[in-house]
Design a protein around this nucleic acid. Sequence first.
DNA 1: ATCGGCTCGCGCAA
DNA 2: TGCGCGAAGCCGAT
Length: 467
Amino acid sequence: MVDKRRVRVLREGNMGSGPVVYVMGRDFRAQDNWALLYAQEKAKAAKVPLGVLVHFGKNFIATNERQHDFLIEGLKEVSAELEALNIPFFITIGDWKKEVAEFVRTHEVSLLVTDFSPLHEMRWWWDEVSHGVEVPVHEVDAHNVIPCWVASPKEEFAAYTFRPKVHRLYKEFAGAIPKTAHHPYSWGVSKRACWPRGYAKDGCCAIDWGGVKKLRSYDAEVPPVAWLKPGPVAGEAVLRQFITQRLHVYDAERNDPTKRAISDLSPYIRFGYLSTQRIAHEIEKVRRDQDAKAAFIEELVVRRELAENFCFYNPNYDSFAGIKNWAKETLDAHRKDVREYLYTPEQFERAETHDPLWNAAQLEMVKTGKMHGYMRMYWAKKILEWTASPEEAIEIALRLNDRYELDGRDPNGFVGVLWSIGGVHDRAWSNRSVFGKIRYMNYNGCKRKFDVKAYVEKHQGTTAALF
DNA sequence: ATCGGCTCGCGCAA
DNA sequence: TGCGCGAAGCCGAT
């Protein structure tokens, strides 16, 4: 049974007699998925078919070719896995209100289930959809170990206020997740035919993935990356490799961008190919490296779910308006400070600053789709230092993050940028030029901690090939 | 190499 | 009301 505390009712109402549909918005996987398990539980109780729907609309889950490719290639795998479980996979394209509402009417859907995201797009969409359909809509937190609204009822001040709440509830929610079962009630073949309209191949049932892939290719400006393969199977392999090859050095070396100690799991978590709870469970099973395990669980659960908490409770999670008063005041007091360097958004984007370390970080992100976590702090703080205003710095950092990172457009990214530039979840430090009391970082600090030259050499070059 | 100060405010003990 | 201490640091003194 899915814990009732994972579920929120977005639209009240009684179930009809038709199939249950899970609208996958964020957690693209067939196993370890509480939203799918909940939908299946409801469908089994009502003895009705179960289907999964993914909607491709404006400002959807991916906004460029790199992320779109990572999504489509993974979705192919997920959809096949669902079909094998007798859970048909559908897509709709275009306007939410029209397409989803029509899907619901055509198939006489009795209940819509979705996965939780704290981000505006998803919440606004569901607000609209809930008003545009006449069936109940239930939302399930399938992304967090502890459901966001259960972990805390308010915006947390810092990790230290959130941590004890997480630790109190962790044992209750963590652990193995039941398997998604082969669904016992079939969706009639004739009813499936011709959906999605215009993207069905061979008459029915098969989706024209080539067509879907072309659907949202923006320019070829942000190409897919080859080193990280999309999908749950690839995610599983990365998790295995992390546990066997890198976990033992995670504690000591995760802040050294020249070492290979980090998990590389964030893109898989971002697209839901891997469940956080499942990752946590696999880590807990390891019988060695206790310090490394604790450090990883801290980042995977406490800090990642703190980012979800911030976006869920703070509607200004992506702007200056979202930071704390002490930080606004101190940044305001330093607005007129002389900036030693000033760069345009294009200069940042093309990695054309005077600082080879900053350029290397930017190049790492542009070329690989994943900047090392430690460098993300330095990178964002320097954007604050080298732009005319904190608003502009936040805008540039978020735009670049969301455009190039495979794990962009995610709560972690918003909080990472606002932590660096706006002191979110941080404390005040010594007053200095431009930064005010926002924690400062510099080149010398990096030199003390890792081999800067090696990092710069590893990511040298230009962005010329991309523009 | 190590340490204290920087500086704010939450949460808890009292 | 007082007090301890915190998301990843820096800097100068010793």
